[in-house]
Amino acid sequence: MNRFSKWRGHPWLALAVRVYLAGVFLFACVHKIANPSEFAMDIATYDILPLVLINPMAICLPWVELGAGILLLIGYRSKGAALAIAGMMFMFLVAIILALSKDIEMSCGCFASQAMESDPIGTWTVFRDSSWLLMAVYVIILDRHPMGIETWMNARRS
């Protein structure tokens, strides 16, 4: 474990993971920002949040995805962004598992308000979101010298 954590390839691997996660979240937020009412309907379909929280969630969450995506991409406060993404992924996973336990047949709503047939929630969605959660945790724990704007700014300062 100690040898693994000391591996010199982590910054490069973490860079690839960060860029991938950033791409996923930047892609995911576009449709939600453009169509908040459709995203609100998706959230409502999960049947978890009370009515008063559905619209604030539909308005704010895509912007947090956008912010986290941009920060991960440029490498500024990337651990904070990865932590936010891990939090969101955990929340999405709980929502999907609860919906599955209630036998709700619905679209994931992760990227766009697709028809149920094209992006249904299921084991695959749980696996996919779990892998993204693990990637975010990897960035938080093992990306100790993140490549990006922050490293460049620190180098200039010193």
């Binding site: 920002i33 308005i59 912007w63 947090v64 912010g67 406060r77 651990k79 904070g80 938080i140």
Partner: peptide
Amino acid sequence: IGHALCDAMIMTAICSALGL
């Protein structure tokens, strides 16, 4: 981790305000 949590909360607050 504390710094990361602080950054995540600040980013969430700023982005939410921007979204609203």
